[in-house]
Design a protein around this nucleic acid. Structure first.
Lengths: 215, 215
DNA sequence: CGTCCGATCTGGACAATGCTTAGATAGCAG
DNA sequence: CTGCTATCTAAGCATTGTCCAGATCGGACG
């Protein structure tokens, strides 16, 4: 809200005696993530990157998980912003859903390590990731609102919720799997990553048509 | 070198010095997974569980990752079997797709730790998990075959492949997310986990209808 | 039957990690 | 200046993945 949600690793040289370390740590973590991937993201490495002792982070985060949570939160904000952008660029309402899906998966491909952290740190908690659905601009809520706006009067809130979950699950699955090397030939045949993405999304119908509407 | 490069193509019943340790290690790992979850699955814990020294596994697996691969392979075989079962129980062909999806997600909920390992160890490799699509009975190939059989004559192989990927991604997304606590009220309203599952799957159409068929 | 070789396992060691505790230091209120 | 609190460091602990030097067992060969 107050801070710009960009991912750029800005080496913000705040020459306070001991500057805003909390912020510096999150930035350092994001920098390591983009540079070396999730497996290199140790608490000690983050401290090293930020130029402090290995124990310093513990004065700002309860444990490693809480640091990861903060990093993930930044990621969700950035995702939400990217999806907002995508909707803003769409010409009419019926394109919104497509553009949201494309923006979602593209984001996950541009920041694979961040995306992984976003989900990983919530998997162990059995609850939705922090920042994913916290406010109206958050990614999940945008999808739901898009559904609600394009829904007819006979569509219940429950229907909207279920449809949102379905769409979200599909996008998430695509985000995690579209990087597999086995899909490279397919992508080439279709003419690029985004074409592949749209191709898969367009085949959702073929799947759905074989599922009877509710039991 | 003397062993076939394809992972345990055949169960080699070679009672070694201390028995078939390789198999014992995989079993021990699976046992720990079900009992204590993925975070407790250390190489040393596996060795402890199997009653051998911490260095013993290195005579059967190059590193921890290779052990995990073997565990995941067992998991994919089990998933394939569960899906085979589901198809066998379906009354007509048009139910196959639904039952496959249900079987997939149910498996992931019955063995959450195993399911996580199945994907985790392939994520770092950027290729499809071993055992996922290796033979005709494997999970992925079953979905593709179901699509092929129920497809009209005008459907190309590429279409079948894309539809398979779409269905797979959706199921995977559902498998990973349906455990989130936020969905509990929804599940209760619908009358249980499986009803929730079918509910979400049935709303795939609502999503797809808003996506224009191919660019 | 005995000898030897190689596959299998042990014990010990190393660096790295998450985390804790005790002590140092800086900024600020009085 | 004095004292308090938040912040940071240094040192240490248990655990982890991995490697290495030997011990040991199984089976092939003579």
């Amino acid at each position: 809200m107050m801070q710009p949600m960009t991912l750029e690793a800005i080496t913000d040289p705040r020459p306070y005696h001991h500057g805003d370390l909390r912020r510096a740590l999150v930035d350092a973590a994001a920098r390591i993530l983009e540079r070396e991937g999730p497996s290199a993201l140790s608490l000690r490495a983050v401290a090293r990157e930020a130029g402090v002792s290995p124990a310093a982070p513990y004065h700002h985060f309860k444990d490693k998980g809480e640091l990861l949570d903060a990093v993930a939160h930044v990621g969700w904000d950035a995702l939400g912003e990217a999806m907002n952008q995508a909707v803003a660029n769409a010409r009419d309402v019926h394109e919104h859903m497509t553009e949201l899906g494309v923006a979602y998966v593209c984001f996950s491909q541009r920041h694979p390590a961040l995306y992984r952290v976003m989900y990983d740190c919530s998997r162990d908690r059995d609850s939705l990731p922090e920042g994913m659905a916290d406010n109206d601009d958050s990614a999940y809520c945008m999808v739901r609102e898009t559904f609600r706006k394009s829904a007819g009067p006979d569509v219940t809130d429950l229907d909207v919720e279920l449809a949102t979950i379905a769409a979200w699950c599909t996008a998430h699955g695509l985000a995690e799997m579209s990087g597999f090397a086995q899909f490279a030939p397919l992508k080439r045949a279709l003419g690029g990553d985004e074409a592949f993405l749209r191709g898969v999304l367009s085949h959702l119908g073929a799947f759905a048509r074989r599922i009877p509407p509710q039991a």
